[in-house]
């Protein structure tokens, strides 16, 4: 029970600081994923049309994924120096694979008959992409962003080692203090909560954007 009291005490004394770290932590993760999306979605669309290239690109991002996060940040630090930008870049690299793979899968899974009837009706390549492929692949792409964001929130915790701040700072402070369990928890709980909330929120967005199911539900409700 002491721990919970200590936790409350910590929060009540440091609420401003904790909030600052929460938002810093979230922004680093979000920027990493956002930049990754800007790169990985177009690349995913491109490799979906080119089977040979897709194997190369996907294995490349696979390799990035296998590098331990701490090692990655250490190496990046040597090049980019300390600070939040290095962490954002690291998260960018980790987010590439899930987004790229889901974009690729989403586009590839669009029914061939739909592409054929689209082309047969005289859509340009870009119109097929915009009016058929992207809307139908959107929910799968969103699922990729969701995975990427949850992973990024986890990895952002070690950003503290290269002076990027974030909730990792609070956790490390706890490990360095004698009897610091409450402080570790003070950092770990918001991190976990943030990951869970991001997961739920993105899941919700994914359902909203799902081309078929969602519209079916809406329609089914009408006659009732």
């Amino acid at each position: 029970m002491d721990i919970i009291e200590d936790l409350w005490y910590y929060y009540s004394q440091n609420i401003g600081y904790v909030w600052e770290e929460v938002s810093r932590h979230f922004l680093m993760s979000a920027y990493g994923v956002l930049f990754a999306a800007l790169v990985a979605i177009p690349v995913g669309i491109f490799i979906a049309r080119n089977a040979r290239l897709s194997a190369v690109v996907i294995s490349l991002t696979n390799i990035i994924q296998t590098i331990p996060a701490l090692a990655m940040l250490a190496v990046l630090m040597l090049v980019m120096g300390l600070g939040a930008n290095t962490v954002v870049f690291g998260l960018f690299l980790y987010s590439l694979l899930p987004i790229l793979r889901n974009t690729y899968t989403g586009i590839r899974n669009v029914d061939n008959a739909l592409l054929e009837s689209g082309r047969g009706m005289g859509m340009t390549k870009f119109q097929v992409l915009r009016m058929v492929e992207l809307p139908l692949a959107l929910s799968v792409i969103m699922a990729g962003l969701r995975t990427a964001l949850v992973i990024a929130i986890g990895i952002a915790t070690i950003g503290t080692f290269i002076g990027a701040g974030g909730l990792g700072d609070i956790i490390i402070r706890g490990t360095n203090a004698t009897n610091g369990t409450a402080i570790i928890l003070a950092g770990a709980i918001p991190t976990a909560l943030m990951a869970v909330i991001a997961d739920i929120g993105m899941g919700w967005l994914e359902r909203i954007l799902s081309p078929v199911n969602n519209k079916g539900l809406k329609q089914d409700k009408k006659p009732a």
């Binding site: 029914d111 005289g122 139908l136 081309p211």
Partner: peptide
């Protein structure tokens, strides 16, 4: 242009679900 001037119906129907 050519394709827009020709109707096209396929076996799998191919209506866009969205």
């Amino acid at each position: 242009q050519l394709r827009r001037e020709i109707g096209y119906v396929i076996q799998q129907i191919g209506l866009f679900p969205h």
